[in-house]
């Protein structure tokens, strides 16, 4: 258990705010996964938790540990950097795979070169 008593109140309040905002954004992103209608829209939803949610919770962690140990604890930055570099790679490969599968199965998900289709992707 943390020695929370030695934390100043403003640090505790700031940490609490970062934690709650980050967790709320992760929840909204995952909720969007259930709510949106087709694959291409659903692929947008987890980005919310990946960027702002992760950043907030990492900020809470950095703040809490830095004040507790009275020296800057910056190794959480590594997770943020990895998340920024890796999430686009997975999403890009996944979207390319889905475009390839849709084209292979003859669904009209692939935008034509001249007129980008306004109705996105396959149903379901």
């Amino acid at each position: 258990m943390i020695e929370a008593a030695q934390l100043p109140l403003w640090v505790a309040l700031l940490t609490a705010m970062f934690l709650l905002v980050g967790a709320a954004f992760a929840l909204i992103g995952s909720f969007g996964l259930l709510r949106l209608a087709n694959f291409y829209e659903r692929a947008h939803a987890p980005t919310l938790g990946n960027t702002f949610g992760t950043a907030c919770i990492l900020a809470a962690s950095v703040l809490c540990f830095s004040v507790q140990q009275s020296r800057p604890m910056l190794h959480e930055v590594l997770i943020a950097i990895f998340a920024f570099v890796t999430t686009p790679v997975t999403l890009m490969v996944l979207v390319r795979a889905v475009l390839f599968r849709d084209r292979l199965e003859g669904r009209n998900g692939m935008p034509r070169p001249e007129v980008p289709s306004r109705t996105a992707g396959p149903p379901g």
Partner: peptide, 9 residues
């Protein structure tokens, strides 16, 4: 891709 709302296709 990192910006929510846009995806590189």
């Amino acid at each position: 891709t990192s910006t929510p709302g846009t995806l590189w296709a």
